[in-house]
């Protein structure tokens, strides 16, 4: 991809954004469009295949992943508003299709995948102008964005560009929230203990809002805060960035 500025990108929204956080998807696309790029939402996209892959059901994961491989002809980057789905496509597709006929295609797709915030900072070098009211915000960088994608700096630097936003840091900020997909279902007690600690740490910052790059984390953290009653709101970082910077 190099340093050349792409003119068009594909947007792979992910199954969770599609069904639960569509505004985050729209916002992500709007942020890219505002930079003068053309955004294509491949109509036939479904899911990256990660849920089955992480459950050990590789044949089933491969079947779903294979259905995505033809959605991205050409050389345009593929932008994904989720660290874990981006991680699945970038780091696990090549393994999943190892010695399968689709391998070359899978590697080609993998090479073009970007997590959204990383794409905004590292490729677009986006400059944001904050139009919002003063606000305290905590960022939960998802583990996949932080480690698998190596993009922890992206969310931090994007929020730092918002003049009226004060980023407050929660204790143990690099620690997992306890979602882990099927983990939350298979090991509910441990997952519950983890999300309880995570929400406690977030609440202690007195932030009004928690943003994250991953729908899974949001569902986990947001769901727990709502269940507990009072506490910060949760929002996908793309939606937050768009709301703060959009000219009305």
């Amino acid at each position: 991809m190099g340093n050349q500025m792409p003119r068009t990108v594909y947007f792979f929204a992910t199954c969770l954004v599609d069904m639960f956080y569509p505004n985050a998807g729209l916002a992500g696309m709007a942020l890219i469009k505002r930079e003068g790029l053309k955004v294509i939402y491949p109509r036939n996209q479904t899911c990256c295949g990660q849920p089955a892959y992480n459950a050990g059901y590789r044949d089933e994961a491969r079947k779903v992943a294979a259905a995505q491989l033809d959605l991205f002809p050409g050389e345009h980057p593929i932008v994904v508003p989720s660290g874990s789905c981006a991680g699945m496509m970038k780091h696990h597709y090549p393994d999943l299709f190892f010695d399968k006929p689709e391998h070359t295609k899978a590697v080609d797709v993998a090479d073009r995948v970007w997590e959204l915030t990383g794409f905004l900072t590292d490729v677009l070098n986006i400059k944001l102008k904050d139009l919002g009211e003063p606000l305290q915000v905590a960022l939960h960088t998802s583990c996949s964005t932080r480690r698998e994608m190596g993009m922890a700096h992206a969310g931090e630097s994007l929020l730092a560009q918002l003049d009226a936003v004060e980023v407050v840091e929660q204790a143990h900020k690099a620690e997992c929230c306890g979602f882990g997909g099927s983990f939350a279902v298979k090991q509910p007690e441990i997952s519950n203990a983890m999300v309880r600690d995570k929400t406690e740490a977030l609440r202690a910052t007195e932030a009004a809002l928690v943003v994250s790059q991953d729908s899974g984390c949001l569902m986990n953290i947001g769901g727990a805060i709502e269940h507990q009653g009072e506490g910060p709101k949760t929002q996908h970082i793309a939606e937050f960035l768009w709301e703060r910077t959009r000219e009305r």
Binding site: A174, G180, S182, F183, M194
Partner: peptide, 9 residues
């Protein structure tokens, strides 16, 4: 092997 969130730490 299932008792992990695969957080990568």
């Amino acid at each position: 092997a299932e008792a992990s969130t695969l957080c990568g730490a």
